[in-house]
Simulated assay, not measured.
Amino acid sequence: MKRISLTVIIFLVAISLIGSTDWKLNDVNVNVIEQANDVVDEINTKLIRFHVIANSDSNEDQNLKLKVRDKVLEYISPKLKDSQNIEQSRKIIKENDDKIRIIAEDIIKKNGYNYEVKTTLGFENFPVKMYGNITLPQGNYEAYRIIIGGGKGQNWWCVMFPPLCFVDIAKGQIAYKETEKEMKKVLSDKEFEEIDNINNSEQTQNIKEAVKQNGAEIKLKFKTKELIERFFQ
């Protein structure tokens, strides 16, 4: 009985300490966190990403992925570069889906492989990713994906709308001014500021810090749940 009582006391002290830490984190400005989340949600709905996923991480499969990328972009670039909105880009991608798959299959066969090719256009969850001078937050993005073979390898990706894939694929990077120009056609100044790596304002840094702290708070709450489960087990 004494052992049980001691366990209960230790448990309650632990919960108290976690609750105290939690309270401090709750001092983070809730409005700032909500503002950041709203910006992220808006960005997700205004872009179409392009991903080419390799069969594996072997050098051969990764090189094949880049060859497929180059030929597909060579074909689709003239059709997408003057697109005026996301609906038009989506329509162009759908109309050319069969042709893109044929191009990918042809490149694969010419290089001595017999991998199948799958293409999809839909929403996928992606982690935080840097692209040139911008960083896209984690979230569900609309993406056109070319999956080669088993699709177990690393992927190459870019932003298909607005058409940033076609600025400088040879170097694998895009000029900042071109990025800003294209992104601001579809994003507000505030939304672009949130993903801009070069001219982030103090306010943007505060938002990121607030989200970071809020994440720590969430982890503490999960830890509390874990402690409770262990106690009753």
Results as ranks from 00 to 15, higher is better:
D196M: 09
T7P: 07
I76C: 08
M1T: 12
K2E: 12
L80C: 08
G19N: 15
I93Q: 07
P162E: 11
I15W: 01
I198F: 12
V30H: 07
V52Y: 09
N44L: 15
K71N: 14
A143K: 00
K129I: 05
Q173A: 05
A143C: 05
I103V: 04
S89D: 13
M1H: 10
E194P: 02
F161P: 00
E202L: 13
K2I: 06
A216K: 13
H51F: 15
S89I: 09
E142A: 01
P163T: 13
I207V: 06
K110H: 07
F232Q: 15
E226V: 07
A104C: 02
I4M: 06
Y141G: 01
D57S: 04
E193D: 14
E217A: 13
E42K: 09
E60R: 13
L12D: 04
T45L: 14
S201C: 01
M1E: 12
E226P: 01
I10Y: 08
D61T: 11
M1R: 10
E116I: 04
P78A: 00
N85T: 09
E34H: 14
I108V: 11
F232G: 11
V13S: 05
L187N: 01
E74M: 09
M130I: 13
K99F: 14
V32D: 03
Q84V: 10
N140Q: 11
K91G: 03
L121W: 01
L25A: 04
T135A: 10
I92N: 04
K184N: 14
I48N: 00
K91S: 13
A104N: 05
S77L: 06
Q233G: 13
I107M: 02
A143N: 05
F192Q: 02
K71S: 15
I43V: 15
K91P: 02
K65A: 12
L187I: 02
F11R: 09
D38M: 11
Q203N: 05
I76V: 11
F50L: 15
S188F: 00
D168W: 10
E194F: 12
I103K: 01
L47P: 01
A14W: 09
E42V: 02
L17Y: 04
I198L: 09
V30Y: 04
K225Q: 08
S58A: 11
K71M: 11
F161R: 11
S56L: 05
I148L: 03
I218Q: 11
K208R: 12
I147K: 11
Q35A: 10
K99Y: 14
M130D: 10
I228H: 10
I108G: 06
N29T: 11
K208E: 06
Y131K: 13
M183E: 10
R69T: 04
L12Q: 06
L47S: 03
V68M: 02
